[in-house]
Amino acid sequence: GKMTGIVKWFNADKGFGFITPDDGSKDVFVHFSAIQNDGYKSSDEGQKVSFTIESGAKGPAAGNVTSL
Rank of each mutant, 00 (worst) to 15 (best):
I19Q: 00
A57I: 12
T20H: 07
E45G: 14
D27G: 04
V49S: 01
N64W: 09
A34V: 08
I19K: 00
K48P: 10
D27E: 08
G56T: 15
G63F: 14
S55D: 12
T4L: 08
P21F: 05
D23W: 05
L68K: 04
W9F: 08
Q36G: 08
G39V: 11
D44N: 15
P21A: 03
K26V: 11
S42N: 10
G24S: 04
F51D: 00
K26R: 12
D13A: 14
G56D: 08
F51W: 02
K2P: 09
G15D: 01
F18I: 04
T66I: 13
N64S: 08
K41H: 12
Q36V: 13
A61C: 14
N11W: 09
G39C: 13
N11I: 03
T20K: 13
S50A: 10
S50L: 08
G56S: 13
E54F: 13
A62L: 02
G46E: 05
I6S: 07
A61H: 14
S42E: 08
F16G: 00
G39F: 13
V30P: 00
Y40Q: 09
N64M: 08
P60S: 07
F10V: 03
S25K: 05
S55L: 14
V28W: 03
F18T: 00
N37H: 12
V49T: 00
D22M: 07
S50Y: 08
K26H: 09
M3D: 01
I6R: 11
T20P: 02
I35K: 03
Q36W: 10
V28F: 04
G24L: 04
V30R: 00
L68A: 07
M3C: 10
S67T: 12
M3A: 06
G5K: 01
V28D: 00
F16H: 02
S42A: 12
F18E: 01
N37E: 11
K58Y: 14
D44H: 15
A61M: 15
I6F: 10
A34I: 04
V7D: 01
K14D: 03
V7A: 00
K58A: 09
V49A: 00
F51S: 00
T20M: 10
G39Y: 11
D22H: 05
W9S: 01
E45I: 15
V7W: 10
I6W: 10
D38V: 12
K48V: 08
I35C: 12
D13E: 14
D22F: 07
D23N: 09
N37K: 12
Q36N: 11
K8W: 05
N64K: 09
I35D: 03
V28M: 04
I35E: 03
K41R: 12
V7S: 00
N11E: 03
H31G: 04
G56E: 07
F10T: 01
S33G: 06
L68Y: 08
V28E: 02
G15K: 05
Q47E: 10
F29K: 02
S43M: 15
K8P: 01
F18V: 05
T52N: 07
G5W: 05
G59M: 04
F29V: 01
W9A: 00
F16T: 02
H31P: 05
K41N: 11
N64Y: 08
F16N: 00
G5N: 01
S25A: 06
A12C: 14
G17K: 00
A57P: 14
D27T: 04
K8E: 01
N37S: 13
G5R: 01
F32S: 09
S55Q: 14
D38P: 13
F29I: 03
G39H: 10
G15M: 05
S42L: 14
I19H: 02
S43I: 15
D44C: 15
A12L: 10
T52I: 11
E54G: 07
W9E: 02
S67E: 08
N64D: 06
I53F: 06
F51I: 02
P60D: 08
G1M: 12
Q47V: 11
G15L: 04
Y40A: 09
V30N: 01
V30L: 14
A34P: 03
Q47Y: 11
G63I: 14
F10G: 00
S43V: 15
A57M: 12
L68R: 06
S67G: 09
F10M: 03
G63R: 14
G59W: 07
I19D: 00
E54H: 14
D23E: 04
H31C: 10
G59H: 05
A62S: 02
T4S: 07
G24R: 04
S42G: 11
D23V: 05
S42W: 15
G63N: 11
I19A: 00
H31M: 05
P60M: 10
N11L: 05
N64C: 11
T52M: 07
L68C: 09
S55A: 13
G56A: 08
D44P: 15
G1Y: 10
S33I: 05
G17F: 07
A57F: 12
A57E: 11
E45C: 15
T4E: 03
P21H: 02
K48N: 05
G63T: 14
S55T: 13
A12T: 11
K14R: 11
S25V: 03
E45T: 15
T52F: 08
G46W: 11
K2S: 08
D22T: 07
T66P: 02
V30M: 13
D22V: 05
T4A: 04
V30Y: 15
W9D: 00
F10N: 00
K26E: 12
E45L: 14
K58G: 09
F16Q: 00
K26G: 12
D13C: 15
A34S: 10
F51K: 00
I19L: 05
G24P: 02
S33D: 04
T52W: 08
F16C: 05
F29S: 00
A34Y: 05
Q36C: 14
F32A: 11
G5I: 05
L68T: 07
A62P: 03
G63A: 15
Y40I: 12
I19P: 01
K2D: 04
D44Y: 15
I35Y: 13
S50V: 08
S33N: 07
F29C: 06
N37F: 14
K8F: 06
K41C: 14
P21W: 05
L68N: 06
T52E: 06
L68F: 08
V49Y: 04
P21V: 04
S67M: 15
D23P: 02
G56W: 11
Q36H: 10
D13T: 13
G46I: 09
V30Q: 01
G56H: 11
K14P: 02
N11C: 11
F10S: 00
V49L: 03
G59S: 05
S43G: 11
T52A: 03
A62C: 05
T66Q: 12
D27S: 05
T20D: 02
D23I: 05
A12M: 11
A57V: 13
G5P: 00
M3Q: 09
D38L: 14
A34C: 08
G46P: 09
S43D: 07
I53A: 02
Q47C: 14
A34T: 06
I35R: 00
K2V: 12
G39M: 11
N37V: 12
Y40H: 10
D44I: 15
T52L: 07
V49E: 01
N37M: 14
H31T: 04
G1D: 10
Q47I: 11
Q36A: 11
K14C: 10
E54R: 09
T66K: 11
L68S: 06
P21C: 07
V49Q: 00
